[in-house]
Nucleic acid binder design. Structure first.
Lengths: 238, 238
DNA sequence: CGAGCCAAAACAGTATACACTATAAACTTA
DNA sequence: TAAGTTTATAGTGTATACTGTTTTGGCTCG
C-alpha cells in the first residue's frame, strides 16, 4: 500500500508460476520491507490479472516458509533466534553431504562459474558493496547446488538456506563477516577443484558453523518466541 | 471415476485444510489405487463444496510430493529406484539426529505411547495383519517425531518418510520384513527408554539402512528414470 | 480525557462460470 | 487393415462475484 513494489511478469507459462517466481525473486533480493503487507488483490491489479493466480502463488510461498499468512494480508516472517538455530541445524545435517556430492559431479563449466562468483564476491567485499556480495554468494551456492544429483536434497537445502538468507542480508553487510564468508567460499571452491569430497564435506561443515556463529553474534536479537514476534505459525499441518 | 473413494470432511477450520487432511490420510492409508485419478470437480461434488478448496488442497499435495499433477487429473507418483534412493539418503542424514533429540525430550506419556505402538506392531506382525502393522508403525514414528523440538526438522522428516511409505505399503506386507522392522523399533524404543541419545542415533541409522535394503530388494523395480515412468516431474520450481 | 462499543472497510475464503488445452477415440483414406 | 487427422470431451487455468470475519477508526458515554 504505502510503497508499491514493482512487479513484472516473467514468461514461463502458467500465471501462478510466473507470479510465484516474481514474488520469490523479490523476497530473495530483499526488496521487501520487513513489515510490508502483500495483498493479493493489489498485486493482481498491478499485474493486470485476477486474484486467483496471485493467491495461489502467495499460499505456495506461505507453505514453503517464505511468507506468513496472517488474517490480514501476507507478510515476511520474523525469525526468532530459535527459528534460525533450527534452520541451521538442518543445514548442518544436509549441506556437507551435498557438497561432497558436488565435489564428484561438478563439471569444468561449473568450476569456471564458481571461480567467477568467487572473484565477484571478493571484489564486492573489497568494494563494500553488500548487494553485489549477496548476489555473488547466491550465484556460488546455486551453481554447486545445481550439480548435486539428488534433487530432493538440493531443493530442501535451497529452501532452508533461502529462509535465513532473507534475514542474513543484514549481517552480510558487515565487513568482517564478508571476509569470513569469502574465506569459506574459497576453501570450499578449492576442495571442489581438487574433487576432494572429504575436504568439501569438512569445509562446508566449518563454513556453516561459522555462518551461524556470525549470525547469532550480529543479529538484532528478536529473542525467543516472546508473545510479540509472530514467528512461524504454520497452519493446518500434521 | 471407476471407484469413487469415500471422503468425509474433518472438522478443522477452513475447507482447504479439511480437504487436504482428508486426502492426505487417504493417501497414507493406501486407499488409493496406483493409477487412480483424483479429479477436483469430482471430489468437490462428493463433499458438496466448490472446486476451489479441493483444487488448493490438491496443489498443496502436489507441491509436497504426495501427488503429481498431470494434464489430466492428479495421481500418485510412481517412484523410481533413483527416487527412493534419493529419499533414503535424505532420511539417513536427518532421522538419526532427530532420534537423538527425541531421546532427550520424550516424556513419560510419550514412552507409554511408544510402548503401546510397539506391542501393537508386534501383535500385527504375529497376526500377519499388514494394515494394522502399518498403522502401528505410523503411530510409533509420529510419536517420537512429535517430541523433536526442531519443528522444521521433524516436518521435513515426516514428509520424506511419507513419500516412501506410500510405496512401502507393499514391502510391509512381507513377513520377514515385518520382523526386521519390529526388531528395529524395539532397539530404538529401548534407546529412548534409557534416554541414550547416542544409541538412538546409531540404531536409527541402522534401522533406515535396513529399511532401504529391504525396500530395494523387494520392490517391484520400476527401474531408473526410463521414458515410461513419469517419476516426479515437479512443475514451476526454481 | 479516557475507555468501550459500534460501524465500516479491508481482505481472505468460497462459489460459480467461462475459456483453453491436451488426450483419446473415431472416422476416413490410402 | 493401418495410419493419420479431426473432433469431442474431460479437466485444468483464470476470472469475477459474494460472503464472512477481523481490524481499525470514530463516536459516545462515563
Amino acid at each position: 500500500m504505502t510503497e508499491t513494489i514493482e512487479l513484472k511478469r516473467v514468461g514461463d507459462g502458467n500465471l501462478r508460476a510466473q507470479v510465484y517466481q516474481q514474488i520469490r525473486l523479490t523476497i530473495q533480493h530483499g526488496d521487501l520491507a520487513p513489515g510490508q503487507k502483500l495483498v493479493d488483490v493489489d498485486i493482481a491489479a498491478q499485474l493486470g490479472i485476477s486474484r486467483m493466480p496471485v493467491r495461489d502463488a502467495l499460499m505456495q510461498l506461505v507453505h514453503e516458509g517464505y511468507l506468513v499468512g496472517t488474517t490480514r494480508g501476507f507478510t515476511l516472517p520474523t525469525l526468532t533466534a530459535t527459528d534460525v538455530a533450527d534452520i541451521f541445524e538442518v543445514r548442518r545435517l544436509l549441506e556437507p553431504r551435498a557438497a561432497a556430492h558436488a565435489a564428484r559431479t561438478l563439471g569444468a563449466a561449473d568450476l569456471k562459474t564458481l571461480a567467477a562468483a568467487l572473484r565477484e564476491a571478493e571484489a564486492a567485499a573489497a568494494a563494500g558493496d553488500a548487494d553485489r556480495f549477496f548476489q555473488a554468494n547466491s550465484a556460488f551456492r546455486n551453481c554447486w547446488l545445481g550439480a548435486v544429483e539428488n534433487e530432493r536434497l538440493s531443493q530442501t537445502i535451497a529452501r532452508f538456506a533461502d529462509h535465513v538468507l532473507v534475514v542474513r542480508l543484514r549481517t552480510l553487510s558487515h565487513q568482517p563477516t564478508q571476509a569470513v564468508v569469502v574465506a569459506g567460499m574459497r576453501a570450499i571452491y578449492e576442495a571442489f577443484v581438487k574433487r576432494d569430497a572429504v575436504a568439501a564435506y569438512d569445509r562446508m561443515t566449518h563454513f556453516i558453523q561459522n555462518a551461524e556463529e556470525r549470525f547469532m553474534k550480529l543479529s538484532p536479537p528478536a529473542q525467543h518466541s516472546s508473545g510479540e514476534g509472530e514467528s512461524m505459525s504454520q497452519r493446518g499441518k500434521s
